[in-house]
Design a binder for these strands. Structure first.
Length: 648
RNA sequence: GCCGUUGUAGCUCAGUGGUAGAGCACUUCAUUGGUAAUGAAGAGGUCGGCAGUUCAAUUCUGCUCAACGGCUCCA
């Protein structure tokens, strides 16, 4: 009996029943067959060797398809497990999935010593096994058989996983001497794996629960070609060069001190300039958008956070209250600015005519983060939010929300972040105990976000369980140099805090109403934003942000006087930079300025002094000719404006 | 917080059971130079901290602090 197979180009071919993806590929071309890793059958990824029994739509997956890569890496995880089992008999296996870049397997080494020194040995074993061209076999087993197998093998983790599986849908995959409980799919055989590299090890709790045993997670990556592994490793090196912790040190943006405490960044002069420019930029944009700046203290009475609900939620995992010596009053370092802003709202009766009231503050907050979580500037214990709270009428929520989206996107585009993910963060579907407020209010808030993003025509992803405890959010995420995702901007709709703080306004009918709050921070925090921006531009900041914009480099001591004149004129135009009066040759001064990523160098010597010009050199471009200083200043200002123009 | 790795000069890193080295940076001197490193000399470290083993510890052991890679967490 024949079945009809529809291919992605729309063509329909007939094959005998039980045809496999691999056979279909072979019927098209041998070259294709050599590349096929898996097959997407009616939208589901299958083994390329699995028989297809009825009419189906089939897409053949290769290394160029994300699902093809995932299958490849998943199979690589099995291969690694096989190699590890061969080298360390008696180990227990957790889970071993493919991830965004590679794969991992969680291993209980059951008494064996394992360290990264053994990586090469494991890699060699994997390649040895790969060359055996062992097919991955899919085996359907009953639950009983499956339990018997792992009970005999003595693998408690697999037995635990089996508990949650239904009889009848359990499959094993077997290659060489290795059998694993696995849903699949897998690549046809191990010989596709031509290059492997183990990357690092890490502890990981069994099933992600910190009450469970910690297993050793081994990360690795593999490729169908040796060359691709090399390219990948070059890419990783490049990413490391962009790491904001490294660049931050080199460019003297920030530092940490053990004596000050972990997670408490010290901003150095150049970093402070960067921060300040970002603040000024946003303040200006916010002024235009109708925000008003406020300032509030760094601590607040514990009572404030009891009211807001933050104390009940986070009190135990926060910095503990400060006690006054005499009255024994309790104060908390402020972990967020909203309660303070609520009190500003309450400072006088409000009319509907005043709304929306938009209160903005670069507010420094302190949160106790677990020590193992701290990471450069992206995860710290003291940081400054570009915070604002919009108090508005319920009928204004959507419009205000959309305006905030515009502001966030304006900020992103001005700073060159084209790639970001807008994530709608909603409540956990099952566990509602983590949240305050009624279902009705939550639904209103969630609806407002969904509608606003739809009306803006934004591409969004929805994540459940990612909401704040008082309301849903729209989060903007970007990736760092090493591919880790970080949340930058956030916009949150909140019906709950106005309740808790009993915020009110008088409506046109002279009745009291409750306003709605929108929390928002386009940068998120200055710290994290600077970190991600640093990596984004590899320390080569746009001209308007560069902490050192122009270096004045006299050829020799004889021209110091003229150079000083030039430098002070630059200062009068608010151009930042330095004058290099060191007793060094010009080549050296240029090199040092290049290394410091200074965008412009003005070289002055005999010729410039006599003609009253400056020789302009642009970083990365070289000499761009001589001109009178005033000409350079206007050229420079043009370039600053260009560097700020929102990219399309 | 948990698992693993690391900690030597301002930075990047060698090294050893007998109290330490390089390059760059820094200081001084010579040099007055034209688009990515001029030369010489000097100074700089209680080898993360505390304890223990030892005749002797930077080196071995324990604890502790911090950083790094993950896990968990993230108002």
């Amino acid at each position: 009996m024949n079945i009809k197979i529809t291919l992605p180009d729309g063509s329909i071919r007939e094959y005998a029943q039980g045809v496999t993806g691999l056979e279909i590929a072979l019927s098209i071309s041998e070259g294709l067959a050599r590349q096929v890793l898996a097959a997407k059958v009616n939208g589901q990824v299958w083994d390329a060797t699995r028989p297809i029994d009825c009419d189906a739509t089939v897409q053949l997956l290769t290394w160029n398809d994300p699902e093809g890569k995932a299958t490849f890496w998943h199979s690589s995880a099995h291969l690694m497990a096989e190699a590890l089992e061969a080298l360390y008999p008696g180990i227990k296996l957790g889970i071993g999935p493919a991830i965004e870049n590679g794969f991992y397997y969680d291993i209980d080494f059951n008494g064996h010593q394992f360290s990264q020194d053994a990586f090469e040995q494991v890699e060699a074993k994997m390649l040895e096994l790969a060359r055996q061209k062992n097919p991955f076999r899919r085996i359907q087993v009953s639950k009983e058989e499956a339990i018997a197998y792992f009970a005999q093998k003595g693998d408690p983790y697999k037995l635990e996983l089996l508990e949650d599986l239904q009889d009848g849908e359990i499959t094993f995959y077997q290659q060489g001497n290795f059998t694993d409980l696995c849903r699949g799919p897998h690549i046809p055989d191990t010989s596709f794996i031509k290059a492997v590299k183990l990357l690092n090890t890490a502890g990981a709790y069994w099933r992600g629960n910190e009450k469970n045993k910690m297993l050793t997670r081994i990360y690795g990556i593999s490729f169908p070609k040796e060359k691709e592994l090399k390219e990948y490793l070059v890419l990783v090196e490049e990413a490391k060069k962009r790491d904001h912790r490294k660049i931050g040190k080199e460019l003297e943006l920030f530092t940490f001190s053990e004596r000050v405490g972990q997670g408490l960044p010290l901003w150095l002069p150049k970093g402070a300039i960067l921060r300040d420019r970002l603040e000024q930029f946003l303040k200006k944009a916010q002024l235009k958008a109708g925000y008003q700046q406020v300032v509030t203290p760094h601590i607040g009475s514990k009572q404030l956070y009891l009211t807001s609900g933050h104390y009940a939620k986070y009190g135990k995992e926060s910095f503990q209250p400060i006690h006054t010596p005499d009255e024994n009053e309790e104060f908390l370092l402020k972990p967020m600015n909203c309660p303070h802003h609520c009190e500003i709202y309450r400072s006088k009766p409000r009319s509907y005519r005043e709304l929306p009231l938009r209160l903005a503050e670069f507010g420094t907050v302190y949160r106790y983060e677990q020590s193992g979580e701290l990471h450069g500037l992206t995860r710290v214990r003291g940081f400054t939010q570009d915070d604002a709270h919009i108090f508005c009428r319920p009928d204004q929520v959507k419009e205000e929300f959309k305006k905030v989206i515009d502001l966030v996107l304006y900020v992103f585009s001005t700073l060159g972040f084209q790639e970001y993910v807008a994530q709608i963060s909603l409540r956990d579907k099952e566990d509602r105990s983590k949240y305050i407020g009624s279902d009705e209010l939550w639904e209103k808030a969630e609806q407002a976000i969904i509608e606003a993003t739809q009306e803006k025509g934004m591409q969004t992803v929805v994540e459940y369980g990612e909401a704040a405890f008082y309301g849903p959010k729209l989060d903007f995420m970007v990736k760092d140099a090493l591919g880790r995702r970080w949340q930058l901007g956030t916009i949150q709709v909140d019906y709950n805090l106005p309740e808790r703080f009993e915020l009110e306004y008088i409506g046109p009918d002279n009745q009291r109403y409750r306003p709605v709050m929108i929390h928002r921070a386009p940068f998120g925090s200055l710290e994290r934003f600077v970190a991600v921006l640093t990596e984004h531009c590899a320390g080569q900041f746009p001209l308007w942000l560069a902490p050192e914009q122009v270096a004045v480099l006299p050829i020799s001591e004889k021209y110091h006087h003229y150079a000083q004149e030039i430098f002070s004129l630059l200062q009068q135009h608010d151009i930042l930079g330095y004058l290099d009066e060191r007793d060094e040759k010009i080549g050296r001064k240029i090199r040092d300025a290049e290394v410091k990523k200074v965008p412009f160098m003005l070289i002055v010597g005999e010729k410039e002094q006599s003609q009253h010009t400056v020789a302009v050199r642009r970083k990365g471009q070289g000499d761009i000719g001589s001109m009178p200083l005033n000409e350079f200043v206007s050229y420079f200002k043009e370039q600053v404006a260009l560097s700020m123009r929102p990219s399309e």
